[in-house]
Amino acid sequence: MDAKADAAVLSAAARPRLSARWATLLVLAVVIATIPWFFPSGFYFRVAALVWVTALAAVGLQILMGQAGQVSLGHAGFVGIGAYAMALGPKYLGLDVLLCLPLGAALAGVIAFLVGRPILKLKGHYLAVATLGFGMLVTMVLVSEVGITGGPDGIRVPRAEILGWRIRGSETFYWIAGGALLIGTWIALNLQDSPSGRALAALHDSEVAARTIGIDVAAYKLRAFVIAAVYGAVAGGLLALMNGFVTPDAAGFIASVEYVTMVVIGGLASVPGAVVGAALLVLLPQALTVFHDYEHAVLGLLIMLFMIFLRVGIVPGLAALLRRRA
């Protein structure tokens, strides 16, 4: 980190931000710890665990999109890499499935590093289409190499064991996923408040301006891209472990669009926004089943309404509303 840039972007608001960071974490921790009291059945553990895992991937994308201002329509590609590592590592390399979680994350990081270097030279929609292409390539390999990946029908993921204890059951995964999200959120919030986070924010505002004050723009973008990929891969790995099964849908274009929607609908500039966005997009399909045939129409309508009336996203939007009241 460059000291000059550091000084340039260090804001006087650093102190209150610090407490806001801990407040966010505290709220999240309290929510994770208390909502199980209200769960009427095991199914709720499953859905809530899914929310935490999805939110972890979304928080990763928020670092890239919200903090570094770089769009990605291929985020699910990294989720897929993490997920398939859990299936392929044990099957072909005889590795313990739990070991495959960090290995998959590392692999995603390395791939992101290699792919990111050329891709991140592109801007805006061109970057979107390049990342879209990357995501499609991942899906295509997963779909076409049937002999290795199991093809479109997917592949089994072995159940994990720690000292002979098999990790299973929605409740166990609820706590694992909740813990992972808490750690992920903590890192993301720290990143946002760190000198490099402010460098990234500068980048978001204006790349040229960031460059002129001495920020190594390319390096920071690449770092955000790699971090986002690692988040995605860890989330994918956890998802695979939780499901005991993975299909190429996990890496698909639709999933990528969903992650982007989560980040934007929750609030592009907000880490907790990504969590809220993920919760919304995971919970809505469950809640909307009462509409039967109208399910998709209502989902689309809600997305539009949220974005029209809370255009900066749910979390910052509601925060602004509250402030205006106060």
Binding site: G42, V47, S170, N243, F245, V246, D249, I254, T289
Partner: peptide, 21 residues
């Protein structure tokens, strides 16, 4: 009846819902 849209992850969640809820 739940519609999984062809997505295995969603199917899994609905299966849990059928069983547990």
């Amino acid at each position: 009846v739940y519609d999984d849209g062809g997505d295995a992850n969603r199917a899994r969640t609905f299966a849990t819902r059928l069983v547990e809820d």
